Simulated scan of single mutants.
Amino acid sequence: MKTPKRIQPLVEEGLIDEVLRQLMSGKEATMYVVRCGDEIRCAKVYKEVTQRSFHQAVAYQEGRRVKNSRQARAMEKGTRYGRKMAEEVWQSAEVDALYRLASAGVRVPTPYICFEGVLLMELVTDADGNVAPRLNDVELNRDRALAFHAMLLQQVVLMLCVGVIHGDLSEYNILVDAQGPVIIDLPQAVNAASSSVASTMLERDVTNLSHFFSNFVPELVNSQYGEEIWNLYQAGLLTPDSPLNGRVAAPTEPVDIHAVIHEIELARQEEDQRI
């Protein structure tokens, strides 16, 4: 196929030899299958901010910083240069998260390079060498659903142990290869230590998983794995091998009203950005 304009610089640099086909177009990027020498890989071309339906919401930007004070001021003022810097921070968040998680043993695509707004990474395939399906397209029964749910909880725990929360985890951004689930799409990854809504994001991710798998294992719908995992993390007790049972004792402490108000304010600001 004709080389897309955004990929042409990678071809000129010798990073990509040929664009084979478009794989899919999502809310934040368009994916292509490309050839790099003898390897078949995936090129993720990030869409411009004006073309994305998934906006850089306040909750996801919180905790992301740039070292250069000029860049930080420009981002705060929303200047043209600042918007460019914000885009680079948005894109680098996924690259940084992929390298960090891959090193921690999390099942994510292997990243190779991010150049001119294009992320070159491993193409996840199934047992037959075809592009791996999304979790929502995989045929499941009770036993397989239980196994995949346990595997994904383990991945969530591994991620949190290195301070990363996916932030948008669901059956639509999980692929299934020959060994099981592979987590993808991480530009909205949340830093657990610096985000005031980290616990909310973590619990939402885990609840999404429980709700999906409850179609095959009904009792999962009432599980509390997200809260259990976060409580262990907050207490400094979470390890990759922490046993989980999905149950949490009823709280005895009063509700933190200020934290609730803060989350409501973040949600309001996020809604304002969409208008």
Results as ranks from 00 to 15, higher is better:
residue 177 D to Q: 01
residue 101 L to Y: 09
residue 131 V to T: 03
residue 148 F to G: 03
residue 249 A to K: 12
residue 123 L to H: 15
residue 18 E to W: 10
residue 239 T to R: 03
residue 95 V to T: 13
residue 27 K to A: 13
residue 255 V to N: 08
residue 189 A to C: 11
residue 13 E to M: 13
residue 65 R to D: 09
residue 25 S to H: 01
residue 21 R to Q: 08
residue 228 E to W: 02
residue 178 A to I: 00
residue 76 E to W: 07
residue 143 D to H: 06
residue 37 G to I: 10
residue 84 K to G: 11
residue 86 A to L: 15
residue 208 N to V: 10
residue 24 M to Y: 11
residue 252 T to I: 04
residue 195 S to N: 14
residue 191 N to D: 12
residue 32 Y to H: 11
residue 143 D to G: 07
residue 203 E to H: 14
residue 269 Q to S: 10
residue 17 D to Q: 09
residue 35 R to W: 08
residue 209 L to N: 09
residue 103 S to G: 08
residue 13 E to I: 01
residue 20 L to C: 05
residue 109 P to W: 09
residue 169 L to V: 06
residue 3 T to D: 04
residue 196 S to P: 04
residue 21 R to E: 14
residue 64 R to G: 01
residue 164 V to Q: 06
residue 252 T to M: 01
residue 86 A to Q: 14
residue 257 I to V: 11
residue 6 R to I: 07
residue 80 R to V: 15
residue 12 E to S: 04
residue 253 E to S: 06
residue 72 A to H: 01
residue 222 N to D: 01
residue 101 L to I: 07
residue 183 I to K: 14
residue 253 E to A: 04
residue 120 L to M: 14
residue 270 E to S: 14
residue 170 S to E: 07
residue 226 G to L: 11
residue 156 V to H: 08
residue 18 E to K: 14
residue 183 I to M: 15
residue 26 G to W: 06
residue 129 G to S: 08
residue 49 V to C: 05
residue 127 A to E: 13
residue 134 R to H: 13
residue 262 H to W: 00
residue 58 V to K: 04
residue 206 V to L: 11
residue 97 A to K: 10
residue 261 I to T: 09
residue 275 I to G: 10
residue 94 E to W: 06
residue 162 V to K: 09
residue 131 V to E: 03
residue 34 V to K: 05
residue 7 I to L: 13
residue 71 Q to G: 13
residue 23 L to V: 12
residue 85 M to P: 06
residue 3 T to I: 13
residue 46 Y to R: 05
residue 133 P to K: 02
residue 102 A to G: 15
residue 99 Y to C: 14
residue 78 G to Y: 08
residue 248 V to F: 02
residue 91 Q to G: 00
residue 262 H to F: 01
residue 163 G to S: 04
residue 137 D to C: 10
residue 28 E to V: 08
residue 251 P to D: 12
residue 82 G to A: 03
residue 112 Y to F: 15
residue 195 S to Y: 04
